[in-house]
């Protein structure tokens, strides 16, 4: 589903974010990318979204080599990857429901489809009573739910999340993780970059640990740190 093949990403001569990294994520997997700040987690997420190009090596998403995707095809690529961020990245001038609908509007969905689909997904994330609220009127956890709803509304095969619980308290974080888990159970591949130790330990999913741009550990049903 997602494959990093010998990927190196250097921002400058001295700052190397990823170094000859190899990783393969299968369809339907739930993978945590863990590591300290600057270990390269976010770089991996941004590379998957083709927000930037690797310095060397190749990345494959859904069997497509990203370097061969021309600039104008990037939107199509991104529609196949739902993304969730630490800072939610909601459109401030749109209500919760409109934010979710926007992701469908960009794909040219019919209004009728959008009208039935948006309430369903808002219900799934538990926000059917707050559809008409603007982001600033919602709590952090609620905003993150909206952003997950937006990422998932078109049912993309892949969902990537960069520190989705970074701005949230532990209780709220549990809810967000459960939501991601539910999405994963529908067959969506979920990749979560995080340094939320508690969450990783509770979920018992595959854990890929990064340190200075290299994979130092890759364990199925792992924990944040090495277990004694």
């Amino acid at each position: 589903m997602i494959r990093f093949s010998n990927v190196t990403k250097a921002y400058s001569k001295d700052t190397v974010a990823l170094e000859r990294l190899n990783l393969e994520i299968d369809q339907g997997e739930f993978v945590f990318l863990v590591g300290a700040s600057g270990s390269g987690k976010s770089t991996m997420v941004r590379l998957i979204l083709k927000e930037m190009e690797p310095s060397a090596g190749a990345i494959f998403v859904n069997g497509t080599k990203l370097s061969s995707v021309p600039r104008r095809r990037i939107p199509q690529l991104r529609r196949g990857i739902g993304c969730v961020f630490q800072d939610f990245k909601l459109l401030p001038n749109k209500t919760a429901a409109e934010n979710v609908a926007y992701a469908m509007e960009v794909t040219g969905q019919r209004r009728r489809v959008i009208k039935t689909k948006v309430p369903q997904i808002m219900d799934l994330v538990g926000l059917s009573s707050k559809m008409d609220k603007f982001p600033e009127m919602l709590s952090g956890g609620e905003q993150q739910r909206v952003s997950i709803a937006r990422a998932f509304v078109s049912q993309p095969p892949i969902l990537v999340a960069d520190e989705p619980t970074g701005n949230l308290d532990p209780n709220t974080s549990v809810g967000i993780m459960q939501l991601l888990h539910r999405i994963n159970r529908t067959g969506t591949t979920v990749v979560v970059a995080t340094h939320d130790r508690e969450m990783v330990d509770v979920m018992r999913k595959r854990v890929v640990a990064l340190d200075e741009g290299r994979i130092v550990r890759d364990k199925v049903k792992g924990a944040y740190a090495d277990e004694v």
């Binding site: 939107p75 199509q76 001038n93 926007y102 992701a103 794909t107």
Partner: peptide, 16 residues
């Protein structure tokens, strides 16, 4: 600009 970046992230084409 933030809005536009978000639009691009959710898969909006330049034209859109």
């Amino acid at each position: 600009r933030k809005e536009i970046e978000v639009m691009k992230l959710v898969g909006a084409t330049d034209g859109f």
